[in-house]
Structure formats: C-alpha cells, structure tokens
Design a protein around this nucleic acid. Structure first.
Length: 403
RNA sequence: GUGGGAUUAGCUCAGCUGGUUAGAGCACUGGUUUGUGGUGCCGGGGGUCGCGGGUUCGAAUCCCGUAUCCCACCCCA
C-alpha cells in the first residue's frame, strides 16, 4: 500500500464539510469587507521567498520545499501566501496604478517541518492582503475581520498585540538590544546566542529561566517607538476599544517573517495544544519595494485552517431532500426516472434494490432525507407514490403526476 | 533537526509476567414480528496484530531497525 507523504493529509467526509464551511464563511466575510479573490501559483522562484520572508527566518533557512526544475530554475513550493500576492501585485503593475487593492486567498502552503498536531507539511491558509492604505484604521479593520470570521465560526480566542516599529525606530532598537545581549552573552543559552545574529528580538521570548531573568532589564521595543509608531499604536488600541475587541499587549510578540513592521498581531486558542496560533498578521509597508515595486503601504493576515478545524462549531444539519425506494423489483426503473426528475430541483438519493418499507425508512433516515418516498405493489397499480415526512412524521399517498 | 510515547477489525480500544482457531463496543451487512425509521430481536462478513529482521520449541506480547502519528524543544498558521 502506498501512503501519503509525511505531514500530508487527505481531507474528506466530515473534515471536508468543516473545511468548506470555513472557506465559505471566511469568503463571505472578506467580500463584505470589500476584498477580492486572488489565486497565485503554488510554485514560485525561490528568490521571491528569500527576499520577502527573509533568509534569517526558519521558513527560508530550513523549511522550504526547494528544488531545481527541468529548466534549471531554482523554485520552491510556497511556504506562505503573502509573497506571491505581493509579487502578483507588482507584476500586474498595480503599484503604479495607485489606489487601494484588497485581496483574499486560500490554498495550500508547504513547509518541511517535523509534523505534530496543528502542524503539517502541506497545510491550508486563508489570508487577506490590503495594498495602498497607510491608515492604522486598516490595521484595525484586519483585526476586526479576523474577529468576525472566528466569531462566525464559534471560535473563542485571545488577541495579542504588539508594535514592531518602523524603519525609523526598529533598527535603532535592534542595535541597542544587540548590545544589551552582548553585555551578557556568556550567560545566555545556545539558542539565544544564535538568535542574537538571526533574529535578536526573539531572545525576549526565550523559555530558559536564566535568560528570562537576564532579559528583565533588556530595553523594551514598546518603550522605544518613534512618535509616528507610538501614535498609531495608541490609535489602534483606541479603535479596538471602541469596537469591543479585547486584546492583550505582548511586547515579546515578534512575527517570524522579516517583512513585518509596526502593527503585529496574533490570535491564539488555548484549546488546540502547543501550536496555538490560529491567525497572525500585521503591517508590511516595506515589502512591496523589497520586491521591486513602488513603495506601497500594506497590511494583511493569514489563518491556519487545520488549526481551526476542530474548533469550528458547525451549524445543525437539517433533514434535506428526498429518498426514493422501491418495494418491488418492477418499480426500480420508475424510481430511477423519478429521482432523475427530482434532482433538477432537490437533493435526491435512491436505493437500486427493492426492500421492505422498514429498510427504506431506515435508509432514508440514515441519508438524512426530509422525505422518504416509496413505491410498492399498491402504488404501482394506482400510479401513485407513498411519501412520509420524516421530520413531522406525517405521511400521504399522492398521484405520480403531482410528485 | 533533538528527546520521549504510541501503532491490534472501517472507528475507539482490551489482550496480565511470550503458550493452541486474537476479542469488545460502535459502524457495515443479512434475516426477522407478512408495508412504518432514527430507539426491538437473532445472525454474518471483516485483522499475515504498521513494516522488516532477530531471540525462542512457540512472538500481538521480548530485542534491533524502519515508517507514520502524538507530545516536548525549535519555529510557525
């Protein structure tokens, strides 16, 4: 038997119901916010991710499905969605067109990681990207959209918020943090030594108790924001307050991707194990120009669909449509024709085998049909069909021409 | 990539320190009280016990390897 590859799942049956329910719900909401669907390729030039996600990130450093194709192009399966959307945005010259462009997408992402619950090698994200709006109101709107989607799916969450600063204040802060780390370099753990050069802000999030103690005196980004960033962050909090969105400030919240600036947020769930981030996003005002576009402010988020799956509260599925069966072999052909006719307007299932009434009722019940329709000896004689409403438990025999 | 646990029927699992034809519940399927379900009764099919080696008279059970899943780390959605 050939099995699927490690970390790659099939989605079917109940999972598929939940999956499509989520996509449909999220799509509907994104459209209400004025976003338009965009589909970008699963395969892109490797350079795209190196320049956008950043070479220092784990994603690019060790998790990409990267290979040389038959044309000797260095390509890889997309590990995240934003880079491709930005590439498309620039390639279609929407940056030069100006104005506001809002997109949403959903699809497979690939990361070569060790799988565990809520972490797969092929997984699915739903995301949105907004281009051309520098107002922090757009950041707030993104957060409210995530809240709406999660709310519509009955999913509880905590929202964590931070500001990463911009090109004004971030580099300065980074420098001061690095020199702080250097001051106690001999005492910190191995991971932090590595983080110092790859992603220094991450050290603040270290779980090692010794490191934690040392870092209590480290400079805090939140205290080193420039006035623009500080004002925007204050405004963001005010907007969320006004719209009844609860949040926690997490000064250690760092997005793993290099392109983020200013607003960073993460929605987490306490009910799905250690992979608790269910949505993450933020502002990335510099990314469009990193990818050779005209400088364009942008903000977006992505949600991990697999992590949401078991949290989604599905609506009750009501009985629907018809089940048609025959009690005598002679009626089977008639039943097939009737079903074909009914299918033009309603969900209809049939059984090709003649069975007694009891078995048909059982089958209709299992198919979750609203009506169980049966043709037997009596009905065949008088050109009628017996119909039972399985919800109201009422029954009647009606002429075939009225069925 | 590192460390730990698990893997027995379609699903959830039992199977004690190795001992004859490997079990349960649910699901599936057939028959039933001669045309009334979801909630009766009786029966049936289905497992080379993840895979490959080894120890043994004998392995689901012990050992080694391997694959996958789960947990923690790393990191992220």
């Amino acid at each position: 038997m050939i099995n699927s590859l490690r970390g790659m799942n099939d989605i079917l049956s109940e999972d598929y119901e939940r999956f499509t329910y989520f996509i449909n719900t999220a799509t509907e909401i994104a459209q209400k916010y004025g976003f338009h669907f965009i589909e970008t390729p699963l395969l892109e030039e490797t350079a795209l991710f190196k320049r956008s996600v950043g070479e220092s990130s784990d994603i690019v450093g060790k998790e990409m499905y990267q290979f040389i194709d038959k044309g000797e192009n260095d390509v890889c399966l997309r590990p995240e969605g934003t880079a491709g959307v930005v590439r498309a945005f620039v390639q279609k010259k929407l940056d030069k067109a100006g104005g506001i462009h809002r997109f949403f997408y959903h699809g497979s992402m690939f990361r070569y990681e060790r799988p565990q619950k809520g972490r797969l090698r092929q997984f699915h994200q739903f995301g949105v990207e907004s281009f051309g709006v520098d107002s922090v109101y757009e950041d707030a709107t993104m957060i409210m959209m995530v809240a709406d989607i999660l709310g519509a799916c009955g999913i509880g969450y905590r929202l964590q918020l931070n500001s990463l600063g911009d090109s004004n204040c971030m580099p300065q802060y980074r420098d001061s943090l690095v020199s702080f780390i250097q001051s106690c370099e001999d005492k910190i753990c191995e991971d932090c030594q590595r983080r110092k050069s790859t992603n220094p802000i991450r050290v603040l999030d270290c779980k090692n108790p010794t490191c934690r103690d040392l870092y209590t005196n480290a400079p805090k980004l939140i205290n080193n924001l420039c006035s623009t960033c500080q004002d925007d962050f204050d405004t963001l909090k005010k907007i969320l307050d006004n719209n009844d969105i609860a949040y926690e400030i997490d000064t250690n919240l760092v997005r793993g991707l290099d392109y983020y600036s200013k607003t960073a947020f993460e929605f987490v769930s306490d009910n799905i194990g250690s992979q608790s981030a269910i949505a993450g996003g933020g502002r990335y005002d510099r990314l469009v120009e990193f990818l050779d576009g005209r400088p364009t402010p942008a903000v977006g988020f992505a949600m991990g669909i697999e992590r949401l799956m078991e949290l989604i509260v599905m609506p009750e599925t009501a009985r629907e449509g018809y089940y048609i069966g025959a009690m005598d072999e002679e009626a089977v052909d008639l039943v097939v024709s009737l079903a074909q006719k009914k299918r033009k307007t309603d969900k209809t299932t049939i059984d090709y085998k003649a069975k007694n009434l009891k078995n048909h009722l059982k089958a209709a019940d299992k198919a979750n049909a609203e009506f169980c329709c049966v043709i037997g000896e009596n009905e065949l004689k008088e050109a009628s069909i017996w119909v039972k409403d399985l919800k109201n438990k009422t029954e009647s025999t009606i002429a075939l021409k009225d069925f």
